[in-house]
Every structure is written in structure tokens, then in C-alpha cells.
């Protein structure tokens, strides 16, 4: 109960804090909270961050220690070399007992690369469309092999459209994604969400989404041009937190777009 209260306080603090972000996901690419979107980071954006992952956001196997799921974290590097492509690399820590010393800790890891391509930019009347892959190499070579774990492996296509009114911005996002294993295919299928970027606080946005099996509510904000923070609650209960350093390698400043 106390944890839930703290979570609400954090969320409230993020909404109230002076906070333009194009969001972050737990894997360093732009998106909503857990579901992918067709939004893209700015050309030249580089990201380096860490994300606290609640066990509810993890697949049902691979993240069990002594029979129980546990909370963990990941860290990532991401880059947008061109405005139509994002790349990232993520390492998620896994808990285990160390062979020699018997010490329990996050000794193991699951690594994967992500790629997101936007063939269609958002227009006045049509949404942006993006396709993406998580765990690219594994997906390409091992999807038929049952001995290879594909914890975060998925492919998706997403469409996102933004609407402006009174300086505010409403984002509508719809995606179809596919996971390859039964321990994570609960998040397969049609997913979607809404984002709201208020006029009084354009650096931040609030998000609500359906991730295929659960609902997720959260917010993110870009502070001081470089610090990207995100917090979310799965089913209004389970907290996830992200902290990311973002900079633009073409030297561009983030400004609020007219809406």
C-alpha cells in the first residue's frame, strides 16, 4: 500500500514539475511506455539510460529466481542516425547465484539490439507508420529454435497521429506486434494508447496505453534539454522508472513545436 502511494506521488511530481520529450521506452528507442509507436526521436539524438523494470513487465520465464519473478533493471544506448531510423542496444540484468562464491546478484544478462524504421512520415491527414524489431539478430537466426530464449524478441508495425487543440497535443497510437514465445505472447496482438502533451508543460506528456494484457499509465518529460525521465504503473499498481541522458549530436536544441 505504501509502495502504491509513493508511485502516485512520483507520477504526480512528474506531471507538476516544469518538464519536450519524444518519450522513451525501456529499450532506448522512442515510443510510448511499453508499446511501440511511429514517433521518432530527432535526427542525431543519442540516448544512454537505465530503466527499473517491475517484474510485471518481464516475460514469465527467464526472470525467475528460486521459482519467483523479481524486479530488475536494464541499461541501454540508443541513437537516431537519420530521422527515419532508430537503433539501440539493451542489456537486461538477470538474477542468479554466482558459481564460485554462491553470492546472489544480477550476474547474468540478456542483450538485444532494436531497430525501428519509419517509412511514412506523419502528414496532415495520415498517421506516421513505423516498423520495428526487437532482438534483431536472434529473430533473424533463431526463431525456429526452441533452445534459444527470445525474452524481449518481437516485431511490430505502428501508426501514430497527433492532433493539436489550444496548444495541447493529443497523440493516438495503434500498433500490432508479435512475440515468438508462449511466455511473452500475452503482449502479442493489437495494442494502442493515447498521449497528452499539455500547453502549459510541453516538455512532458501523460500516457495511457493497453499493452495487450494489462493497462499502463505513466508520464515522461525532458528536463533541462538533456535529462529524460519516465514513470509508469502497470494496472495502476506496479511501478517502472526510467532515467536517461539525451543529447543531440548535430547540436540542435529541443524546442516546442507549434500546435
Amino acid at each position: 500500500m505504501k509502495r502504491i502511494k509513493i508511485s502516485y506521488i512520483l507520477l504526480a511530481a512528474m506531471v507538476l514539475l516544469p518538464s519536450l520529450s519524444h518519450a522513451q521506452q525501456y529499450n532506448g528507442t522512442s515510443g510510448f511506455l511499453h508499446i511501440p509507436s511511429a514517433e521518432m526521436s530527432h535526427e542525431g539524438d543519442a540516448r544512454m539510460g537505465v530503466h527499473y523494470l517491475n517484474k510485471a513487465l518481464l516475460p514469465d520465464t527467464g526472470f525467475l529466481f528460486q521459482g519467483e519473478k523479481y524486479n530488475t533493471y536494464d541499461f541501454y544506448l540508443g541513437i537516431t542516425p537519420f530521422e527515419w531510423i532508430e537503433l539501440s542496444f539493451t542489456s537486461t540484468r538477470r538474477k542468479d547465484t554466482r558459481a564460485v562464491t554462491g553470492e546472489v546478484g544480477f550476474w547474468r544478462k540478456d542483450r538485444y539490439a532494436s531497430i525501428k524504421i519509419r517509412p511514412l512520415r506523419e502528414g496532415r491527414y495520415h498517421p506516421a507508420v513505423a516498423i520495428g524489431f526487437n532482438d534483431v539478430g536472434t529473430t533473424a537466426f533463431n526463431k525456429e529454435r526452441t533452445d534459444v530464449q527470445l525474452y524481449f524478441t518481437n516485431i511490430y508495425v505502428a501508426a501514430t497521429k497527433h492532433f493539436g487543440f489550444g496548444g495541447n497535443e493529443l497523440g493516438v497510437n495503434l500498433a500490432y506486434r508479435h512475440y515468438f514465445r508462449n511466455y511473452n505472447d500475452k503482449w502479442s496482438g493489437l495494442v494502442g494508447g493515447l498521449s497528452f502533451r499539455p500547453a502549459f508543460f510541453p516538455q512532458g506528456r501523460a500516457i495511457v496505453e493497453y499493452m495487450g494484457n494489462e493497462f499502463l499509465i505513466g508520464a515522461d518529460a525532458l528536463l533541462w534539454q538533456h535529462v529524460l525521465i519516465q514513470a509508469s504503473l502497470i494496472d495502476f499498481k506496479y511501478l517502472n522508472l526510467g532515467l536517461c541522458l539525451q543529447l543531440n549530436m548535430l547540436g540542435k536544441k529541443y524546442v516546442v513545436a507549434e500546435r
Binding site: R93, D96, R98, F106, W107, R111
Partner: peptide
């Protein structure tokens, strides 16, 4: 160097 599963 990420050589071992049981060490970071």
C-alpha cells in the same frame, strides 16, 4: 569483457 554468464 562479457565472457561469462555468471559475472557482469
Amino acid at each position: 569483457y562479457d565472457f561469462y554468464f555468471y559475472q557482469k
